[in-house]
Design a protein around this nucleic acid. Structure first.
Lengths: 222, 222, 222, 222
DNA sequence: GATGAATGAGAATTCATTCAT
DNA sequence: TATGAATGAATTCTCATTCAT
């Protein structure tokens, strides 16, 4: 008999053991799925693999998700849900293009670096190079960026350019660079943000110079 | 023992028959795999799927390839052989960053827009549109880019920048913009290439201007 | 602890509440099972199906019944209680074979034609129409017939004929004709009962004559 | 190396070992399904049960049938296919109602008795009282009976009665009585045919009399 | 009593691969 | 070499039932 049982009437905040176990199990499954996706790649992992990485019974999985695709989408959604407010807030504060762009990349790379498991589960795949499912939350995140861009254009911060393509370019660079960044020995989010920002601000010819043609770590992991 | 086999023994003239059949079967399998990868994506396709898309018997598959991984590799090799000339020709002509970048995007967007079989747009659930990019051909194309990029830096055409990140940026923009482009009513590969090239050459502030805040087509297809 | 439970403890007046809920739940389960058996057929329905058709929790089911077999039995028992009066009334009035036979068919065809919920017509594949007869009520109905028939023979209303075969013949005709009847445009239970009764009373040569070789409706629905 | 291999070119009749094994396996599965349906009833048997009653691997089942329903239908079809010509031939020879009716029942009951496994598999069910799937062949058999009846009516052998209902009545009596007959200690097909014929010729009051109210065997098996 | 999540046995089905023909 | 049926491990998913709350 634990504390909760003793104080079952303490208030609405004590959700009850049942409720807590449910939330816990969902997290257990999501964490296990992370792990397995990151190890085997999305295409190669089976529901069994996920269950095996869990102390739960096979049937329990299906109390929470209908398929591995659904777990995957849940992971994506949670991710998008966590980062979206931060990105939006940062962009809202921006008064110049530079702030808008650099803020977006910095927040994104920081998030990715702090939540490696999540991002790697989504992006790193041994067999297929890219699997990205557009869950409602992810799409919403893209849309939010586009709306923010259109607002910035309307306000005159940006010139009247193709917001749809610019959104795509930002998203593409963010995701693809994030993946590369995580493969490096010591991911440096500021370096990545600086690179991306410089590219968007001044183009290829004004990117920061480096020693040699590229980082060693990258070569090993093509 | 079928007619072909019987003929093969009829005389020295048809001695090449067997050889030709072997080559043909290999091509049949590769073509089928090509098709199926494009439809289902590499991760989701099974050897059975490939065999089913073939007039051949299941056992025959194993006379040519050990697994779908091996077919994948073969397609990559063959497609690299086919794509390389186009890429090489274009990039070999490039003497400036501008030509290099614009050539790359133009080729890629043209390729995506024209090669229907490879880049089937598939709708998932209700509102999500994804484009299959995990196809041997595409991956080979990116590897090409990577190699060329490193060469260009080594030759001094590009400043000594982070080639790994630059490749990622190009790939990300290419991918993501391609998807957006395909959603538009009448995909305009030159417009897309112009946009991407301008971004990489001069940054956000010098992108081509448009009427209104964004193209109409994009709005319809969110 | 919900409102009902709280009320139950409010005072002596609602002391019967719990009892009433128990009876209600039993009825809820029986009604749901009734429905589901009619839809899926007895063989194909699972306990889960029954629970799903209920607002109750799965565990609750087992407070009332041990298995679907037990629910089946309970429905049979209850329906026998409900049907018996009608059957009894009709057959009790019968003093002749004719009345017995015609009463039986008339009741059965009326029952089938009227009780929509129980006798769902199901289409299999493309062209096959079947009528659900594997429902507790129907089975109970046939058992009734069997008992009554044996009683009638024992009472001397029928000659000492093979009751087992006669029961089989009546059941077979009832089943098969009922299905045919339901396929017709406007099922006419009296016509069907007249036909069956005439057959059993006087044989094929004295069946009611019709225009043409067969009813139009029947032809349309083969 | 068996005879077939040695004489592989003997002619089209020697189907080759592969072909023979295929036919054999199909028969093995059908026979096992018979057996299991008869033992457990259609509703309760699983594909696994059928496979278990077979020396074959689980996957092999699916080379032949997609589900237990399909096996069931195959059994029915084979059955119907075997008996239909005999029934038709007999009815074609008939010049009187009596011959038509008695021929039909006699052939049917003989067939059922000689092929008990088959019929029981189809009809005897512990859980649901009746499962009969109308496969194309079975439907064709019913239709054939109806056509024969309509022809007989047109020829004046039968009076102008409802052929559809009469067909249903004959089918119902045949199936239901057959089931009862098989449950008896020593199935007597002539007795059954006599009973059914007498019923259809002269009605209930002229059925053959028996000692007691019914056979002992029947009582045990209700 | 009511609840409904957990359980894990077991059912349906697919898979890659082999091998006799 | 081509064939394609056989294999049985592996996978997805459902089920009846239990039991802590």
């Amino acid at each position: 008999m634990d504390a909760d049982t003793l104080h079952a009437k303490a208030g609405p905040k004590s959700a009850g053991k049942r409720e807590r176990t449910k939330v816990q199990n969902r997290q257990i499954i999501l964490a296990a799925a992370h792990q397995v996706f990151a190890e085997l790649g999305y295409g190669a992992t089976t529901v069994r693999d996920i269950i095996r990485a869990t102390p739960l019974a096979s049937g329990t999985f299906y109390n929470y998700f209908k398929s591995k695709e659904e777990v995957f989408q849940a992971i994506q959604d949670e991710s998008a849900l966590r980062i979206r407010p931060r990105l939006h807030e940062e962009r809202a504060k921006a008064t110049t293009i530079d702030e808008f762009i650099s803020g977006t990349f910095q927040i994104f790379f920081d998030y990715v670096a702090s939540d490696q498991g999540n991002f790697q589960a989504i992006r790193r795949n041994t067999d297929t190079l890219r699997v990205r499912m557009d869950t409602p939350e992810v799409i919403a995140g893209f849309e939010e960026l586009r709306v923010d861009l259109e607002r910035a254009i309307a306000q005159g911060m940006f010139p009247p350019i193709d917001a749809d393509y610019l959104m795509a370019a930002i998203v593409g660079v963010a995701f693809e660079m994030a993946e590369r960044m995580l493969r490096r020995d010591r991911p440096d989010t500021e370096e990545a943000a600086r690179f991306a920002t410089a590219l968007f601000m001044n183009g290829v010819r004004n990117l920061p110079h480096v020693q040699g043609v590229g980082p060693k770590a990258a070569k090993d992991n093509v």
